[in-house]
């Protein structure tokens, strides 16, 4: 079973994402901001990260840069999932090492499609 860390400051969104990912047979963990996510990754690296951008304490993009600098931190496949939907943000995410990018609102079809594109399904 593959693992996915769901990072979003909205409990509701985490719940929706968790339901979708569990249906896709992922083992899920959650974090409410970038710092929590980073701590979780330092304990053990997940196969995938579904990552919000704007969060308190540490943003998604800051988390991603820290993650990629960790030993083995290049491993997890990171899929942004955010309301930021302009080219600049998307480009910044790709440069920081994001593998895919979902513009909210999302549904299970979009998550499933993007996850299979990056070889997680």
């Amino acid at each position: 079973m593959k693992s996915c860390l769901i990072v979003d400051d909205s409990k509701v969104i985490r719940m929706v994402a968790r339901k979708i990912l569990e249906e896709l047979k992922f083992e899920t963990r959650e974090a409410a901001d970038g710092q929590q996510a980073l701590d979780s990754c330092k304990e053990s690296l997940p196969d995938a990260v579904l990552l919000d951008w704007n969060m308190p304490v540490m943003s998604g993009i800051e988390f991603l840069r820290e993650l990629r600098a960790l030993p083995g931190g290049g491993g997890p496949i990171v899929v942004f999932c955010t309301t930021e939907n302009d080219i600049q943000h998307i480009q910044e995410a790709i440069e920081a090492g994001a593998n895919e990018y979902i513009m909210k609102p999302f549904d299970s079809e979009i998550i499933q499609g993007k996850f299979s594109q990056v070889g997680l399904l």
Binding site: I87, Q91, I94, Y101, I102, M103, I110, G113, Q117
Partner: peptide
């Protein structure tokens, strides 16, 4: 936004589309 998220890799979206 929905249509460009179905099947299109994000790298191709930024490369070949204008918002």
């Amino acid at each position: 936004q929905f249509e460009v998220q179905r099947g299109l890799p994000i790298t191709l979206l930024v490369k070949y589309f204008d918002k």
